[in-house]
Design a binder for these strands. Structure first.
Lengths: 111, 111
DNA sequence: AGATTCGGTAACCAATTGGTTACCATTGTC
DNA sequence: GACAATGGTAACCAATTGGTTACCGAATCT
């Protein structure tokens, strides 16, 4: 809710498998376009267009480094998706437990 | 991972704002098609088509009751989306805490 | 049985999507 | 300065989407 229209359309951006693959690929750190595109079957401009959608959705950031453009994850907008799903969590309580345990294992002793 | 191709395409199903609205509308319990459609600007067949997509994605169930079809939420496939987003959570740690607190307040004393 | 209601599907249409090739601006190298 | 590398954008195209109207089957009510 902080920055009003922060996300142009995160749900739409994330709906495409290629775009999710791009995000997944960026998970390990910044990647330049050429290197990114090399990992896909499609042409470089096609990847560029996907990157644009991701940029518009604020899911990635573009850093100009020399003559390359390095793309990096900025997945904060996914919070919107997560928040929306949150209200459906009550329908699968089992997963609640495992998530809780997951969080617990990260923090150890809180309560 | 359990049932292999359980979801035809949850991400796609959820990408459309109307379909999300339908799911939200179903949040309170089962609703028949006519009543559902009344809540939207578009025609009844248009809603029917959205329902089909949601059905294919296993996000809703259709119960025939008399001559009505009552639709109900079966949002388990959203777990796939949630799981995918999970790996990006590390990028916004603040939310981790609040979620944990949210879970804690719901269960109170576990272990 | 006949009429009515409920809702899925078919046929169709305009707009959008995801891909292509061609072109261009910018940056780095010789 | 000339040339190569990098990558965004334009123009175009086929396939998909989201909507419409028309039709039809199934269930309910006289």
């Amino acid at each position: 809710m902080a920055r009003a229209r922060a996300s142009i359309d995160v749900f739409h951006a994330v709906a495409d498998p290629t775009r999710r693959a791009i995000l997944d690929r960026l998970h390990g750190g910044g990647v330049a376009v050429a290197e990114l595109a090399a990992g896909f079957e499609m042409s470089r401009p096609a990847v560029s267009k996907h990157l644009r959608v991701l940029r518009d959705a604020r899911l990635v950031r573009e850093d100009k480094e020399g003559r390359q453009r390095v793309y990096r994850l900025t997945p904060e907008p996914l919070r919107d998706v997560s928040a929306w799903i949150e209200s459906y969590r009550s329908f699968w309580p089992a997963s609640l437990m495992s998530l809780k345990r997951h969080l617990e294992s990260g923090k150890e002793s809180s309560r």
